[in-house]
């Protein structure tokens, strides 16, 4: 079992998201993350899907997705260099002055941004891989009380420079 990434080009009309998501639940595939948004062509949407599966199931997932009329193209990211990021917000409530200073230091270390605050709360935004976001959440969770986490799921695109 390991985590894998797929990108899908799909028709941009209602019902397509639930068709893809429904396939995962109907076949008991382990859907970890799914994001969707329109592309440069407004009639086409692109999905980035993270799944946890064994090799055989992963092959099935790709075939089953390919078989959907609404799915235009399936790209397996397993052996393709990609850029992949996830948007994460963490809000920390009841943060005193020293807490807030600590949050600034953590944000800097993680290349996250502090985007909003008042005298009691502070909000950071981080756009990183989901593993790095996991670490940030863990760190904040262990050091502060009253935190609120919102994350967006990963989006990915093929790299240009093959890095």
């Amino acid at each position: 079992m390991k985590k894998r990434w797929i990108s899908l080009y799909v028709e941009n009309y209602s019902g397509v998201l639930v068709k893809v998501a429904g396939l995962f639940s109907a076949k008991a595939y382990n859907l970890d993350s799914l994001t969707v948004g329109p592309t440069e062509d407004p009639t086409v949407s692109r999905m980035t899907i993270g799944v946890i599966s064994d090799d055989a199931t992963f092959e099935q997932i790709k075939k089953q997705l390919n078989r959907c009329v609404e799915v235009i193209k399936v790209i397996d990211f397993t052996n393709i260099p990609i850029h992949r990021d996830e948007l994460l917000y963490i809000k920390i409530a009841s943060a005193d002055k020293s807490d807030r200073e600590e949050v600034f230091r953590i944000a800097q270390a993680f290349k996250a941004e502090v985007i909003d605050c008042d005298m009691e709360q502070i909000l950071i935004r981080c756009v990183q891989s989901e593993q790095r976001n996991d670490s940030l959440i863990q760190l904040v969770h262990d050091n502060f009380k009253n935190i609120e986490v919102v994350r967006g799921g990963s989006v990915a695109i093929e790299s240009i420079s093959m890095l």
Binding site: E59, Q60, K63
Partner: peptide, 11 residues
């Protein structure tokens, strides 16, 4: 004819 039928249940 269905590629998804192949290796779905048996290798």
């Amino acid at each position: 004819i269905d590629s998804a039928a192949i290796s779905k249940n048996i290798k």
